[in-house]
Design a protein around this nucleic acid. Structure first.
Lengths: 136, 136
DNA sequence: TTGCGTGCAAAGGTTTTGCATGGCA
DNA sequence: TGCCATGCAAAACCTTTGCACGCAA
């Protein structure tokens, strides 16, 4: 969790702002690229996006998920105060929204898994897919 | 679920037997390829493996998962009598073993998610990662 | 000035597709 | 015989890496 040097650059600001603006979703590199490069004068290279996302992911500021039936990873900004390693996440396969399962039942669930299935869940990399209320 | 024509060929038998022999794990195409092609006289092409896995996946005979921090998919054979769309699965990131969470608590969990989070889980594509008892 | 950030091109790895051939039913 | 299965090569993607240059501190 050691905070490394963190230059503030225009490109990084653009990427981070996109992530913050879409904090309810888990977005792909393509999403970011397409959005940022619609402003033709201010473009960001894919490599830069990958590297910065990787950095943010290591610092715990975004969650990285590699899932669904493409081989594409998606990334989601998380509020610094959210303890995302303590609860699971549910992603709507229709609209892409990601919900935090941060309720008391989560603890019960983890305990059950641990006691009855002898399995220690790693929330950070797990993702539950399904359909949200609005999309039904 | 409509059963399509299903030719029985030597290659398919080889692949299916490998899957059955590793039904506790979710295996990659590379795994299958490497294993089958250690018999130098009887080799199977990667394309064939992909196409057959795709077919089996559509028929519901294997679960396809695209996860973890590589962009690799893994596949797991499931017994025809297992109702894998009714429960979640837990995969050990260390040994690759996949456990079926088919217990009564699962229903309770699904109900909680549905009632309190207004979210309908799709078990087939979801995967919970963590570490199993033996690997701890 | 120093070291990190960025872009470009190229490479690496996984998965898909087109096409001709082979093989089951 | 009529399809489907297979292999090969190539293409399509996503992601990573090397290297030279740019830029924040």
């Amino acid at each position: 969790m050691g905070r490394t040097t963190n230059y503030s650059t225009e490109k990084r600001t653009m990427i981070l702002e996109y992530l913050k603006a879409h904090k309810d979703e888990s977005v792909s590199v393509k999403d970011i690229e397409n959005s940022l490069n619609s402003n033709l004068d201010k473009s960001v290279n894919v490599t830069t996006i990958y590297r910065y996302l990787d950095k943010l992911s290591n610092e715990g500021q975004v969650l990285k998920h590699t899932s669904e039936n493409g081989s594409k990873s998606t990334y989601q900004y998380i509020n610094p105060d959210k303890l995302c390693h303590n609860h699971l996440h549910m992603k709507c396969t229709s609209c892409g929204k990601v919900m935090h399962m941060d309720c008391s039942f989560m603890d019960e669930f983890m305990r059950h898994i641990f006691v009855h299935h002898k399995f220690t869940i790693e929330c950070k990399t797990s993702m539950i897919y399904g359909v949200c209320n609005e999309c039904k």
